[in-house]
Design a binder for these strands. Structure first.
Length: 885
DNA sequence: CCAGTCACG
DNA sequence: ACGTACGTGACTGGA
C-alpha cells in the first residue's frame, strides 16, 4: 500500500479548536483550549488515517505575495483574540516536542505550503491528506487527495471529507472550478473582491455552464441576469485578480525532504511533561503505552482477605505517617487499603467470609491511635462510615482532597486520579474508567482480584506520597495554618453537623405541601382562562409564546432560545396584563412546592424524621462551605409565605430549643478592616446603623434626617460595592438613571477613599500574582485578570474584588464554628451545632444549658477574629427555625 | 445534558 | 463600545 502524508493547516485548525472548546486555563493560569482542541483533532485524525508522514503549516505575520498584488487582501480580517494568540507559541512548543515538522515561509500562506507539499508528495508517490477548517482548500481535492474539514461540536470532533467527486457532488463544480467560482463571488473574510452583483447562486450557475472565468468573460453577453452580464464585462480585471488571489500555489520553492517528515517518537517524555503541565488529562493515555512514559504502579501490592492476614498487616504497621483509603460502593465499604514505605501497599478486602465488622475490629487500634498519623482523602466520609459501625473519634492528620482544594480552589474535581496527576505527575484510570458508567457499570466484586488490589492500594499510596508534595506547596504559600488550624479541624465539626441532622415536623410539612398544591390547582385554571388556552406554565418557552405572541405583550427577546420570562422582566409587565401577576405568584408557589415541600419530604429520613444534609468543604471558589441533598443554605426567608416553611424545622425533642446566631454586616466589617478606611471603621466602632451612616455621608445630610429611601439606596450601594457592581446595574436596581447611580458611587468612593484604593490594589496585585487572597491566606487563582477580553476581564475584576471579602468572612465563621464546637465539647454540653448558613449558626440547645450556650455562641463568634472593627452577633431563641430567626 | 429560573447569604 | 453584581444548589422542560 502506498505511503500516506497528513498535512495540517495549523492556523485554521487552531482557530476552529479555539472557538469549539470553552476557554480553559491550567493551574498556572494559561489559556489552553486552542491547544487542547488542536491536539484532540490531531490525535483523532492520526488514529483514523495512520499516516507515515506528517507536517503542520502556519501563516506568518509578514505580508505575502497576495498583499503585494492587492493592497486590500485580508484587509477585513480581524486579528486573533489575545487568548488565542498567547497559545500559539505553546502549540508550537508541543508540536516540536512531538517532533512534528512545522512549516512557515515568508511571503506565503499556510495554504500554499499545503498545496506545494501535497503536490510534491503526489509526485513522490505518497498519498496526501490535507486537513483544514477552511473550505478554500477544497480546490486541492483530487482523485487520491482527500481534504478533511473537522468540526468540534460539544467536545466531539466530526469531519467532512472531500475527494474531487465529493466537491462536485456537494457544490456542483470541480475543485479547479471552485477557484473560478470564488473569483466571481468574492470572499469577504479574505477581502477578495469578486464581481459586484454576483453571489454564490449566480457564480455557481455561470461556472457550471462555462467552467472558468475566461470562457465566461468571453460569453459575458449571453449571461443572465443582465446585471451579472454587465458587471462581468465591466469588472473582468477584478475577476482575474480575484482568481489570482484565490488560487493556492502548488509550486512554491520548497525542499522535499521525505525523511524529515516521517513520523517519529511523538509520544515521548518531553511531550508528556508538557501535556501534563497543560493538564490535558484525557490525552495522557496516548503517552502511556510508549516506552518513554514514566513508570507507574509497577509495584506489586499485597492482597489480604482474612483475619490472620489482617492481623499480620496491623503488626507490620509502624507508628507514624500512613496512607489509607476505604473503597466504597454505594456508601458500602468494600475494604481498606494501607500504605507505608516499608510496608508497601496492601489491600484488605471484606467479604462474606471476612466481614467488614471483623476487619474494623482488628484495625480498631489503628483507628483509635493518633500516633498512626493518617493521610486520607475525604476524611469526613470515612468518619461517617466508621461511625455507622460504632467507631467514634476517628481522626486523620491530612486530607488530600482538602489539601488540593486549598492549593487550587477552582479545580473541577479532586479525585485520586486528579491528585496523582497534579501532585505526582502520574496518571491512573479514573473511577469511571475502572468501573464504567451508566448501564454498563461494573460492580467492584466483578473486577479481577489483581485489579481490586491495585485500585485500592494505589489510592493509599497516592495519598501518602501526594501529601509530601502538598506540604511543601502549602509551606511556600504560607497556607499551613489555614490548612492545619482551620480546614482540618473543621472536618470534625461538619461531620457532627451531618450526624445530628435537623428534625422535621412532618405533619406540618405535609400540610404545607397540601396547601400549596391546592392553591396551585386553582391558579392554574385562572391562568388558562386568562390565556385562553391550556399550556405548561412551567415551560418558559411555552409561557413566552403565550405572553409575547398570543397576548402581544412587549418584552422582546432576551435569551438565546427565545423570550425571557424571568421575574425581573415580568415585574415590569405587571400592569400590562392581569395574567402576569398570577404567573409571578404561581411561580413562587411552584418553587416552594417542588423544591422545598416535595424536595424536603423526599430526603427526610423516614425513621428519625430528620434531614441530613451534606456539607461540602471543597466546592466554592471563595472558601465558603456548601450544602447539598438537600441544600439547607437556601431555605426561604425573604418572603412571608416561604418563611413560614421554617416552622417545620424543629428541635429533636422537647428537651431542646433552637438558638440562632448571626453576624451583623460581617462583609462590610471585613471590608472596613481590610481596606483600613477610617471613616467606615469609625462607623462600626460607634455601632451606628451602617446604612443610615453611609446615606448621611454619601448624600451629605445630617444623620437624623436620612429618609427611608436614602437609607435603602445607601444599603444598595453598600452591597453593590462588595460585589464590584457598576453604575448601570445599580441604577437598574434603584430605578434611577445610570448617571445618578454613577454619582452615588463617586460620592461613596470620595467619602471612603481607602475602599477605592483597596479595590484597585486588589485587581492590580491579582493580575500580577495570578491570584487574590483572604486575611488567612486562602487563595483563588484568577487568570481572567490577564485576559484581553473586556467582558472576561471585567467579570474577573468583580470576582477578584469580592473574593477577599466573602472569603475572609468565610474564614471567620469557620474559626467560630471550630471554637463553638470545641467549647461545647469541652464543657460537656449536650447542645450542638447543627447548621451553618454563611453568616449564621444554628444550635440545637439543651434547654437547661440555653443561657450558657447563648453566651458561648456570642463570645466565640464575636472573638473568632480580632479586626479593626468589632464583630457583632445577634442571638435569638425559639421553638423552630422560624421563631429563632 | 443544558438552559432557564429562583431560593439563600 | 463592549454588557452589566459576588458566591452557591435544585427543579423543570426540552433537545
Amino acid at each position: 500500500m502506498a505511503e500516506k502524508i497528513m498535512l495540517i493547516d495549523g492556523n485554521s485548525i487552531v482557530n476552529r479548536a479555539f472557538y469549539g472548546v470553552p476557554l480553559l486555563t491550567n493551574g498556572e493560569g494559561r489559556y489552553t483550549n486552542g491547544v487542547y482542541g488542536f491536539l484532540n483533532i490531531l490525535f483523532k485524525l492520526l488514529d483514523e488515517e495512520q499516516p507515515d508522514y506528517l507536517a503542520v503549516a502556519f501563516d506568518l505575520h509578514a505580508p505575502t505575495f497576495r498583499h503585494r498584488t492587492f493592497d486590500g487582501y485580508k484587509g477585513t480580517r480581524k486579528g486573533m483574540p489575545e487568548e488565542l494568540r498567547e497559545q500559539m507559541p505553546l502549540l508550537k512548543e508541543v508540536l516540536q516536542a512531538m517532533h512534528i515538522p512545522i512549516f512557515e515561509q515568508e511571503g506565503f500562506e499556510a495554504d500554499d505550503i499545503l498545496g506545494t507539499l501535497s503536490a510534491l508528495a503526489e509526485k513522490n508517490g505518497i498519498v496526501p491528506v490535507v486537513v483544514s477548517g477552511d473550505r478554500d482548500l477544497l480546490q486541492l481535492a483530487g482523485e487520491t487527495l482527500k481534504v478533511r474539514i473537522p468540526k468540534t461540536k460539544g467536545g466531539r470532533t466530526e469531519t467532512e471529507d472531500y475527494y474531487a467527486a465529493d466537491v462536485q457532488a456537494k457544490y456542483g463544480v470541480t475543485p479547479a472550478e471552485f477557484i473560478d467560482m470564488k473569483a466571481l463571488m468574492g470572499d469577504t473574510s479574505d477581502n477578495i473582491p469578486g464581481v459586484p452583483g454576483i453571489g454564490e447562486k449566480t457564480a455557481a450557475k455561470i461556472i457550471t455552464q462555462y467552467h472558468d472565468i475566461e470562457t465566461a468573460i468571453a460569453h459575458a453577453a449571453e449571461i443572465k441576469p443582465k446585471k451579472a452580464s454587465e458587471n462581468l464585462a465591466a469588472y473582468q480585471e477584478q475577476a482575474r485578480l480575484s482568481k489570482f488571489l484565490a488560487t493556492i500555489v502548488r509550486d512554491m520553492p520548497l525542499e522535499w525532504d521525505k525523511e524529515s517528515l516521517k513520523i517519529g517518537d511523538m509520544f515521548n517524555q518531553t511531550a508528556y511533561e508538557l501535556v501534563k503541565r497543560l493538564e490535558f488529562k484525557s490525552m495522557f493515555s496516548h503517552f502511556e503505552g510508549s516506552a518513554s512514559a514514566p513508570k507507574q504502579a509497577e509495584q506489586t501490592y499485597r492482597f489480604v482477605a482474612d483475619r490472620e492476614g489482617a492481623k499480620e498487616v496491623l503488626a507490620a504497621l509502624k507508628k507514624g505517617e500512613v496512607g489509607y483509603a476505604f473503597v466504597y460502593e454505594n456508601e458500602e465499604g468494600q475494604g481498606l487499603a494501607l500504605y507505608q514505605e516499608q510496608l508497601g501497599g496492601v489491600w484488605i478486602e471484606a467479604s462474606m467470609a471476612f466481614l467488614m465488622q471483623e476487619l474494623l475490629e482488628i484495625f480498631q487500634p489503628f483507628f483509635a491511635d493518633s500516633a498512626y498519623r493518617k493521610i486520607g482523602h475525604d476524611v469526613k466520609k470515612d468518619i461517617r462510615f466508621l461511625r455507622s459501625y460504632g467507631y467514634n473519634g476517628f481522626t486523620a492528620e491530612f486530607d488530600t482532597a482538602i489539601g488540593a482544594y486549598i492549593l487550587n480552589a477552582t479545580g473541577s474535581s479532586y479525585e485520586y486520579d486528579d491528585i496523582a496527576a497534579t501532585f505526582l505527575n502520574e496518571t491512573y484510570p479514573s473511577q469511571e474508567e475502572v468501573f464504567g458508567k451508566g448501564r454498563t457499570k461494573k460492580a467492584f466484586a466483578a473486577l479481577p482480584e489483581a485489579e481490586r488490589t491495585a485500585y485500592g492500594a494505589r489510592q493509599a499510596e497516592i495519598f501518602f506520597r501526594a501529601r509530601k508534595v502538598m506540604e511543601e506547596r502549602l509551606a511556600e504559600n504560607e497556607q499551613k495554618s489555614l490548612f492545619y488550624d482551620m480546614e482540618m479541624p473543621l472536618i470534625y465539626v461538619l461531620a457532627d453537623m451531618e450526624k445530628y441532622g435537623i428534625k422535621v415536623d412532618k405533619a406540618a410539612l405535609l400540610a404545607y405541601q397540601k396547601r400549596l398544591g391546592e392553591s396551585l390547582d386553582g391558579m392554574e385554571e385562572e391562568i388558562y382562562a386568562l390565556a385562553g388556552e391550556k399550556f405548561n406554565i412551567n415551560s418558559p418557552k411555552q409561557l413566552g409564546v403565550i405572553l409575547f405572541e398570543r397576548l402581544g405583550l412587549k418584552g422582546g427577546k432576551k435569551t438565546k432560545t427565545g423570550y425571557s420570562t424571568a421575574a425581573d422582566v415580568l415585574e415590569k409587565l405587571r400592569t400590562a396584563h392581569p395574567i402576569v401577576e398570577r404567573i409571578l405568584h404561581y411561580r413562587q408557589l411552584a418553587k416552594l412546592k417542588s423544591t422545598y415541600a416535595d424536595g424536603l419530604l423526599a430526603v427526610m429520613d423516614a425513621e428519625t424524621e430528620k434531614i441530613y444534609s451534606t456539607f461540602n468543604q471543597t466546592i466554592t471558589a471563595t472558601g465558603r462551605i456548601s450544602s447539598t441533598e438537600p441544600n439547607l443554605q437556601n431555605i426561604p426567608v425573604r418572603l412571608e409565605l416561604g418563611r413560614e416553611l421554617r416552622k417545620i424545622f424543629i428541635p429533636e425533642s422537647a428537651e431542646f430549643c433552637f438558638l440562632d446566631a448571626d453576624y451583623s454586616q460581617i462583609e462590610l466589617r471585613v471590608l472596613a478592616h481590610i481596606s483600613g478606611d477610617e471613616s467606615l471603621i469609625a462607623a462600626f466602632k460607634s455601632n451606628q446603623d451602617i446604612h443610615r451612616m453611609t446615606a448621611s455621608q454619601v448624600f451629605h445630610v445630617p444623620f437624623d434626617e436620612v429618609t427611608p429611601l436614602q437609607r435603602s439606596n445607601a444599603k444598595a450601594v453598600n452591597f453593590g460595592i462588595i460585589y464590584g457592581k457598576g453604575a448601570f446595574s445599580l441604577g437598574q436596581d434603584l430605578g434611577i438613571s445610570r448617571k445618578e447611580a454613577e454619582e452615588y458611587i463617586n460620592a461613596y468612593f470620595a467619602r471612603y477613599p481607602k475602599i477605592k484604593t483597596f479595590m484597585e490594589d486588589t485587581i492590580k496585585n491579582g493580575a500580577k500574582n495570578g491570584y487574590v487572597s483572604t486575611l488567612w491566606n486562602r487563595r483563588r487563582n484568577m487568570p481572567e485578570l490577564q485576559s484581553s477580553n473586556f467582558m472576561q476581564r471585567a467579570a474577573g475584576e468583580r470576582a477578584a474584588m469580592n473574593m477577599p471579602i466573602q472569603g475572609t468572612a468565610a474564614d471567620i465563621i469557620k474559626l467560630a464554628m471550630i471554637k463553638v464546637h470545641r467549647a461545647l465539647q469541652e464543657g460537656g454540653y449536650r447542645s450542638r451545632l447543627i447548621l451553618q448558613v454563611h453568616d449564621e449558626l444554628l444550635i440545637e440547645a439543651y434547654k437547661e444549658e440555653k443561657d450558657a450556650v447563648a453566651k458561648i455562641l456570642k463570645e466565640n463568634m464575636e472573638h473568632a477574629a480580632d479586626l479593626l472593627v468589632p464583630l457583632d452577633v445577634d442571638v435569638h431563641e425559639g421553638a423552630s427555625w422560624f421563631e429563632a430567626k
